[in-house]
Design a protein around this nucleic acid. Sequence first.
DNA 1: GTCTATAGCAGGATAGAC
DNA 2: GTCTATCCTGCTATAGAC
Lengths: 194, 194
Amino acid sequence: MPRIDKMQSEQERKDQIKKAALKIFAEKGLVGTKMSMIAEEAGISQGLSYRYFESKDEIFALLVEEAIEESRKAIRDIDKFSGSPLEQLKSFTLQMLDENHKLYFLLVQQALTLEVIPGKAREAIERYSPQETIERIIPIFVRGQQEGVFSEGDAYKQLILYFSVVNGLILQDAKVIGMDWIREVDRLLNILTK
Amino acid sequence: MPRIDKMQSEQERKDQIKKAALKIFAEKGLVGTKMSMIAEEAGISQGLSYRYFESKDEIFALLVEEAIEESRKAIRDIDKFSGSPLEQLKSFTLQMLDENHKLYFLLVQQALTLEVIPGKAREAIERYSPQETIERIIPIFVRGQQEGVFSEGDAYKQLILYFSVVNGLILQDAKVIGMDWIREVDRLLNILTK
DNA sequence: GTCTATAGCAGGATAGAC
DNA sequence: GTCTATCCTGCTATAGAC
């Protein structure tokens, strides 16, 4: 007879720890995060995480892999957003800014700024060539240019600019509370338009 | 008789260590930076830094104070840039992106994302109310609006947006080498204009 | 004044009680 | 299955030789 109380299955416990870890890692990075912080955030004791994961590095690597997988999926699905290039990009941007994606995004940023990242995380990062993202988004920019809405110039540079700007927005968002960034996305996209 | 060789005065040695520390701190944050890294960057032995500074925290705090002082100065001098609001802002932005200011900027970012920062650094951060920056820059935005160049709306929000965007640009700049960001500043300012 | 060696401590990981 | 009490490594900071 299964238990009815709030006791959790192994998978649920793992998810709980991972969720807590994601929040702290995204905020403080790999070295800045102590296992005790993750435990506290998850509401468990310091040593328990090790019954579910081998090491801090393993959790980090796991999350980075998930983040990258999530990101690939978002990129793959970008054509599902209907509308003009501008509207597509707006939908995509808003998606990046939502709660879940934001944390993943910050985590990858953390991983990218580290020189010494755990082997598995490094693999995931290296496997995920930005080429994939670029090939997927550049056509949208080009279409925007052809339709005369986007400004002329090197679409690749525009893309990098666009991402670094969204990056800055997400980073800021982590600090300034109570600001409705979503409203600002329109203004943001002015970077790209004529 | 003073020595003629490359032996350094106490002040020069301090500056050398501080310069090395700034570079590493800006990149890896307080916890991510090991004293051995600073020593290596400065080309000295691991223990020597402690003849010139009391602790890692002291160096960090010192640099944060300098960074903030530098930032106040840049803000105070913003009216010295001549020209239209747009040109003023462009000059100011380019200044933020130059080598020196960039590192300071990243350092303050690091300090802002930490919860536990050394007492002195915390004081400096708290003493430096963003109010000062805001009061200085808002009038430029307002003037831009009055002249019909900047888009309408809450100038405060535009300011925050602008800073988070520049922030993203600086962060990206630390990673993507060989990209001439300066050329992109014009495009960046499109966020603000009609 | 600078280096090398090490003391001391913080934090990751483990062992053992419950 | 979870917690508490350690072990052990790696880093900050210090001591002492040159």
